[in-house]
Amino acid sequence: MEQQADTTKIGMWLFLVTEVLTFGGLFAGFGLMQSRYPQEFIEAHEHLQRPLGALNTVVLLVSSFTMVMAVLAARTNQSKKTVRYLIMTIACAFIFLGVKYFEYSHKFEEGLLPGSFYHTQATDTVKIINAAGQVVPSHGYATFFSFYFMMTGLHGIHILAGIGLLTWIAIRANRGEFSSAYYTPVDLVGLFWHLVDLIWIYLFPLYYLIS
């Protein structure tokens, strides 16, 4: 049993590495575009609300804590505690998505959208002259929001997947399926959840705090 647990854990870590590399590619793209459009990225980031980003960071950090407490409870044969901590983790995930929904709808209303859907803002100062001789805002603004929605969107999909996994684990824990002898699913879902937190730890400063 112990060898099985060790092996599944190695597999989980290999999966987490692929996740890191997936997001790593997006971070690389973000970094390159930021070095190309520094002024535009700084102006565009002013549209993101720092307090909301900080709130979501705190929510995810607390959810990571409740998750690790759920793993500890499962390992020490406390099924009820496990379920309680898992429900708290799921609640944090929903708070995170609620804040994100509020942020997204605000951006939609203002026309802060990716790519060609971007509506020019009054604060956009960097202008270029296009092939037709018209003065138009730089592509940098739309590029910033393309990356913003791509990366926070992909992260949000991970949160949704996490909610599904946590619910599944909570139902199984409620049936009393986990004990000190077998709690691998709780452990592995925990690892996934911490990775989602870890990605946000990098997303938050890069999007909300650059200046």
């Binding site: 520094p38 700084i42 990571s64 804590f65 998750m67 690790v68 925990g190 911490h194 937190d197 870890l198 730890i201 990098y202 938050f204 400063p205 890069l206 705090l209 650059i210 200046s211």
Partner: peptide, 23 residues
């Protein structure tokens, strides 16, 4: 702005290390 980014990413990395070592 490069200094600000370096500081923010250094703190983020410390946080990431804490999460991976303990959580």
């Amino acid at each position: 702005s490069a200094a600000n980014i370096v500081i923010a990413l250094t703190i983020a990395t410390i946080k990431a290390v804490l999460v991976s070592l303990f959580f």
